[in-house]
Amino acid sequence: MSTLHTVTKPGQVMALCARAVVSGDSVLLIEDAVYELLSPPTGLNALPDSCSVYVMDIDARARGVEVSAPFEVIDYDRFVSLCVDNEKVLSWF
């Protein structure tokens, strides 16, 4: 059973989320959490290798944050699909 973790803020919130993630979970960065891609990625590095990380397109664009592999840019339609595909959604903010 897998979980989608949505993260809304970088830094401490991202780090807390990372500690709750297990192998097979997915992480979606929305709002200010997209800044996590600019900072030394301590929280993101703490994620298990098998964990997919998605970035909300409109939030990254709005903040001038460029997204490159292995991170995948998604829209709200895909966010909904991720909620369906995972049994649970946990929100970190």
């Binding site: 200010d32 829209d75 709200y76 339609d77 909904v80």
Partner: peptide
Amino acid sequence: VYGAPANSQAPQSALHFARALVAQ
């Protein structure tokens, strides 16, 4: 939704999400 329009993006993100839900 736990955030206010004037000091968070929460209601806006939630509305985007809700619209996508209904559309699907």
